[in-house]
Design a protein around this nucleic acid. Structure first.
Lengths: 198, 198
DNA sequence: ACAGCCATGTAACTTGTTACATGATTTT
DNA sequence: AAAATCATGTAACAAGTTACATGGCTGT
């Protein structure tokens, strides 16, 4: 929803045409996440479908301007007022992967973590190099803001990897493996006491 | 891709039927992220379409077992060998939102950050309460592993919010606002020097 | 009998994303 | 003239997600 909501929020400042929206999004996010132009028009169509924007005037140069509707403005206000929820719906790819990998008997989890750690540290260093100094103008402020977000997240990732590696090293492999249930769920309600345990 | 890959990795341990796969996924991820049963069958169909799994035997009880293919095994191995990349493709909803909000003139960014911070701190506390002690059996180990991941991420989020609030407070609003370009991109290549700057 | 879980499946939908087609304009 | 950029759009697809339909089985 972030692209959709961002474009809508930008349109709240004034009518724009598609190509211009991409430039605005790029600038405001410090060109951190490249946005395919086609996605803009796609998203605009969907926003129009949902009644949040409307196709407006056409420039003498052929620019198709889109304007936000009242419903769209309300949507932007709600978006800004509501916090981003990191609830059950937000899955962390790395956490899932390691949790699953840790329960896979034949897998060397330490190696998986090691490889990941090396990559994450490299990413972190690249981010720190890429991030300029604190004194920045408005455009670079947005960029460094986003860069900081990724740096903080990468730091937490490395810390978690170390923490996890340490915890897993303290638990023997046998206890770690969760084999497929030998007594699998049966059709219908399960009996009060499972009998067929291997 | 995480659900898809996880199911495939579980199938690498042995044939399963759909409902069982959900139970396995739930257990291995500590029931952190609820998985709609329908999604299992959906994902299995797509994995079959891609030649990574095959519909196997049917139980005397009607259970439809799925088995992994050689291509599927290769896919799992590649998944485990390759680190999770947090590159340009991975968008952070919160970072995007704040970056955009910070460039919206009429918006009180401090308030947005404040609301977010309160929510994030509450989430963090809830996670810490929910997370049991370190001594846990195999099933709880997976749960606390994932819980730790979310705790570390939430901590980083709060730190970033504070960091960002501090940085933004040091920059006056005028410098922060990035108004829509008055000289908008024209059709064709732009002139060497823009003349029409407001 | 009925409620409730086990189990499979289908249909529809969301956002995100890419590849491609098309043409105008402008710089080189 | 050619290359590059500006600009709009379309078609297709991926992964995730949900709601629903349909039975079977079991405990009360």
């Amino acid at each position: 929803m972030s692209v959709r909501q961002s474009l809508l929020a930008i349109l709240d400042q004034g009518a724009c045409y598609g190509y211009q929206l991409r430039a605005e999004f790029d600038r405001r996010t410090g060109s951190t996440w490249p946005l395919n132009v086609g996605q803009i028009y796609n998203t605009l169509d969907r926003l129009e479908r949902d009644g949040l924007v409307a196709k407006g005037d056409v420039d003498e140069q052929g620019h198709v301007y889109w304007r936000i509707t009242d419903a769209g403005r309300a949507d932007v206000a709600a978006w800004l007022a509501a916090p981003v929820r990191r609830g059950p719906g937000t899955r962390d790819e790395l956490a899932i992967k390691l949790a699953v990998a840790a329960t896979l008997p034949g897998v060397d989890v330490a190696e998986v973590i090691g490889t990941q750690r090396a990559t994450s540290v490299a990413t972190l260093e690249r981010l720190r190099r890429a991030r300029g100094d604190d004194d920045a103008d408005a455009a670079d402020l947005a960029r460094s803001l986003v860069a900081d977000s990724m740096i903080f997240a990468a730091e937490a990732e490395v810390r978690w990897l170390d923490h996890t590696a340490h915890r897993l090293s303290q638990h023997p492999l046998q206890e770690r493996s969760l084999p497929l249930s030998t007594d699998r769920p049966r059709r219908g309600r399960p009996a009060a006491a499972s009998v067929a345990s291997a």
